[in-house]
Design a protein around this nucleic acid. Structure first.
Lengths: 195, 195, 195, 195
DNA sequence: TATGAATGAGCCTTCATTCAT
DNA sequence: AATGAATGAAGGCTCATTCAT
């Protein structure tokens, strides 16, 4: 291919395409097995073009992870604010989970990356926030500190695994998943809420 | 300049040492960031010695993972056999979890590797087995197929995360953890069993 | 997004600015460590603009060096012509050095480039001319060919180093430097001339 | 070529060869135009071998420069110590120059590198030492501070240029050069000393 | 006249692996 | 059983340069 600008080329578009392809490939092969050459091949550009838009492979990766974290926290905070004065925290949690699962379903590759990077995982991002929410509810039937700490970790683990398997691989409905998780953790009776 | 066999050297010992160090380093840095040069440095031998005992980096890694899987399955099968005729499957599960957590606590590095490698994780190894065990119990209060499937995945996720965090990082007691998990998943009342 | 001619832009001006900035940066970082991106950044234009006015990085560099050489030779030739019939060649030399040092002082960046590029340096440019001038004088107190050859090289070396250090870094007066060099090379007595 | 150790290979030898070739090529093409591929080709090894013995291209280069500086300073210090109590500092200087030129003649490539790297050159290395030596002598016929400062710079410039041209390119005798330089700088009468 | 967007070509460096001793 | 010495094969990144607008 000749040097210089391509016909109809557009920087914004190229950058977006590169980022998208990067997310896809990172999610499939992981950070270390993803070569920049793979990404640019998928985006149909050459390697220097990659460096036109991203500082390095690592930088792009961190950007992606940051984006994931940011979105998740936004969902979290928005929901909590919205339901702040709701009486039944079980409802809050179910809504929250539904929204999170919906976000995951809409961003499967990004989610796979986010949940697979052990170094951070949901644990780091959400444990504190989950803890706060759960606390009210948990205190009703959990007698001590430690138990509640484990309860939260367990919940996070459930969300992680169910997301990776049932949601992303088996395409189950976000609403259904949220309902089931809530059933497991917060009741034995039927509990359904609309969002 | 001196070459050849070290004084007091012993093949068996070198191999064991290499495997141990490999497990430690893999668990800390992950497969791709672990260099053979790191492993041999830690074992105080040279690189060709590594290839005296292992075919390749990948082979050794797979061996390690296989060992982990094998041990886990053994615990699983032994426990199930032992408690086959026990009336309360909740007890079986609590015993099983206690043993698994104990094994994890005794093999922290190996466990970190096993649970961190998303490509397989407990999910692949244990889901079917857990399913079988759970089924009896679950059928009591879960009305359908799908719910039970999610229930199992959730349980596995809980075990994974609680193992990595509460058990390995925060050094909580295996027995305590098993108890709490069982409490979350199988009852709201106190439930303690001895192993 | 806006492309095309800048408001108030002017080709001549851009070219001059680019050349100036190039000289500054070349002199500070050297040919290989100077990137075109540095030059255009300093001139506040984009890379293609550079190629509007110069064929290549190398071409511009050679142009610059040629300019330096040309100016130097002009000073040389003018002075020699002017003082052709002067009796005391010591005076000629002192005038010559004064003018050269003055030119250097007025063009510090260009001079740094010219004197630092070992591949050519003053040696190549001036040795023959200096030789001719010196000859008359030198023959008075130097007995042989070889000695005179070394004498000239030594003089050139002195001029080079004194220019880079005393003149450009320590800001000594051109007149003073010329006087001292002449003192070293052509006498022990006081010798001052006006230009 | 097959992988692994070459027949009769020897690390010490490879390293020396690489360093030698590096010096040759650096001196001919300069730091930036010397590719590691050039060096290893000349030494008949592959690129990774280079990194077996040197940290990087830059590191090797600095090592080389440091070696040059070190040797020069040694010559300098030894000579000064030896002639400390000599009455005629002119003799000291002539001996010193003779030795330096001899060292240069024996290490032409190294010298070319050392004198060509403008960033340090003899100036940085030797000016202070030369100053000290010259002082005694200079004070006899130079009336002031500034003059003596220029005198020393001039001397260094002479040594640099004469080394690169007369000595390394034209193969003049070190002794002869030293004598001539001393004649220029320290007398008009004949001055010969044996070393 | 000037810019936005892109590429060809290449260099440094790393790492798993292998031969010769 | 173990080491010293070496290499094949990539991969990340940079930079001068060039189209299309």
């Amino acid at each position: 291919m000749a040097r210089g600008r391509k016909v109809n080329s557009n920087g914004e578009k190229s950058m977006k395409l590169l980022r998208e392809k990067a997310i896809e490939i990172f999610s499939e092969y992981g950070y270390f097995q993803t070569k920049i050459s793979d990404i640019v091949k998928a985006a149909n550009v050459t390697q220097p073009t990659f460096y036109l838009y991203f500082e390095s492979k690592e930088t792009l990766y961190k950007e992606i992870i940051t984006e994931f974290k940011f979105n998740l926290e936004e969902i979290f905070d928005d929901t909590v604010n919205e339901y702040e004065h709701h009486q039944d925290s079980k409802v809050t949690i179910q809504v929250l989970l539904t929204r999170i699962f919906n976000y995951f379903a809409l961003n499967p590759h990004l989610t796979k990356i986010g949940l697979t990077e052990s170094d951070m995982s949901l644990n780091g991002i959400l444990s504190q926030k989950f803890k706060n929410i759960c606390e009210k509810f948990v205190s009703n039937f959990l007698n001590n500190e430690i138990a509640s700490h484990i309860f939260v970790q367990s919940l996070i683990g459930s969300v992680e695994r169910v997301s990776l398997s049932a949601l992303l691989e088996e395409n189950m409905k976000p609403e259904k998943l949220a309902e089931e998780i809530v059933n497991i953790y917060f009741s034995r009776e039927e509990a359904t809420v609309s969002i």
